[in-house]
Amino acid sequence: MSDFRHFMKRGAVMSDMASERRLIEACQRGDREAFHELFDAHKDGVWTIALRFTGDESVARDVTQQVFLKLFTSIAGFRHESNFKTWLYRLVANECMDEFRKKRRLIPLDFLKGGRPAFSDDRDEDCGEVEIKDWREEPLQEERLARLEISEAVLAALMQLKPKLRMAIVLKYFEDLSYEQMAEALGCSMGTVASRLNRGHKALAQKLAHLRS
């Protein structure tokens, strides 16, 4: 019976993959209608990541449109060597991070924690990058939390996470990606994915420790 189930499941997945491949190949030939279908199939996923990452509908709209515009101009280069969804989500993650960097340039230095230099020691393992502290990363006020529903409080806490940790949480919990898919989408190792999720979970738990009882 398990063989049968496996066969059925594999059949369904292969069928979906074949349909998507045909759609992508039509897009690569410049078929606008096919691109519209591809957009329809993935727009909610892209929008969800952009919205949950940026927390702002107008920014999410810009990010989503830019992602699909980049997809339109670059889809000819997609060689079906990787999973299309994770390839697309890599565009989304990059666009979100670009958007964050743009916004960060506008933040006055006064907002940076304790007047310290803009760089923290928080080195991201494997990627070897140095990250600027997010000025929004400060404790949530108790009275503010009391006014929020739990999911709103979690969302508020999520918005205070460092961008890389936030993106890992968004991809895991809103899009249900595996560590392997996340590593592909984020362009890092599975170890880095695990580390970012570890840190993201801990940060959420610490910011919302009062909900633990």
């Binding site: 739990i150 949480i169 809103f174 979970h201 801990k202 959420l204």
Partner: peptide, 11 residues
């Protein structure tokens, strides 16, 4: 970590 994960899953 489990508590943080439960919060995220709640989202």
């Amino acid at each position: 970590i489990k508590f943080g994960s439960q919060l995220a899953a709640r989202l």
